[in-house]
Design a protein around this nucleic acid. Structure first.
Lengths: 121, 121
DNA sequence: CTCCGTTGCTATCATTTGTGTAGCGCGCTA
DNA sequence: TAGCGCGCTACACAAATGATAGCAACGGAG
């Protein structure tokens, strides 16, 4: 079982030091992890609803991410399904600005895409 | 070549809508992407130096991440090697708080690890 | 009770991604 | 010329992910 939830203090994928920030990056740097947190920040969701929100995430991966996020204390089960824990809410507060920034970034990307050569009329 | 740099506005891994936030999450949710940004935020680095900073990243992956981050406008080449672009700096400003929070999170994790049963004195 | 739909979740397997190692071509210095 | 470090590539193997099918449990309707 080479796949384990990254924990600060213990070696993680690519980091033997276990620096908290690296453990966090290992946890969040897995497919759909950030997306799941993002979706759950809006409202608690059932497993299947979460699956629908993340358009095409397979149940195997979703289940793995949920398990990891639960073990990391970011996510928990409630009456309405899965939801962010207090810790998860804290994290989301830090992540939230990425929403606006990403649209700003999108504009820059489109500019660079539509204007490969920029120094003319 | 199924591996392409996620761009806002075009379908990304797991998101056909191409919502900017999802494209960003797709980009950052790849192994070492966040770590590379984190390392480069401290100082520009050469390819090999970056490889050492990220303890065991293989050159193939590092090269891929660099290419993706460059195409995304977050990273560029300078005299001292690779460095964050202005856009990349912007992003890092938003990510920076994660550094402190991750240590806070680490404390919570350790508490839960050392006290598996919590409902006593 | 059976039937039906929904739930969370697992099993399986093909595809994609990452790892680890070796090494190339280049430019520089001596 | 030889030696060095540079960015980067090639290759084979391991790991993670994607996609699909399906199970057991629960609740409500009949």
């Amino acid at each position: 079982m080479p796949n384990h939830t990254p924990r600060p203090g213990s070696p993680v994928r690519g980091s033997k030091t276990g620096k908290p920030i690296m453990a966090l990056f290992d946890l969040l740097g897995r497919n759909w992890a950030l997306g799941i947190i993002w979706q759950l920040s809006q409202q608690p969701m059932t497993f299947r609803h979460l699956q629908d929100s993340c358009e095409s995430v397979s149940p195997s991966v979703l289940n793995r991410r949920i398990k990891e996020l639960r073990e990391s204390g970011l996510l928990e089960r409630g009456d309405a399904g899965y939801q962010l824990s207090d810790t998860g809410q804290e994290l989301f507060q830090l992540l939230a600005p990425l929403g606006n920034w990403s649209t700003h970034w999108a504009v820059l990307q489109v500019e660079n895409t539509t204007e490969p050569t920029s120094s003319n009329t």
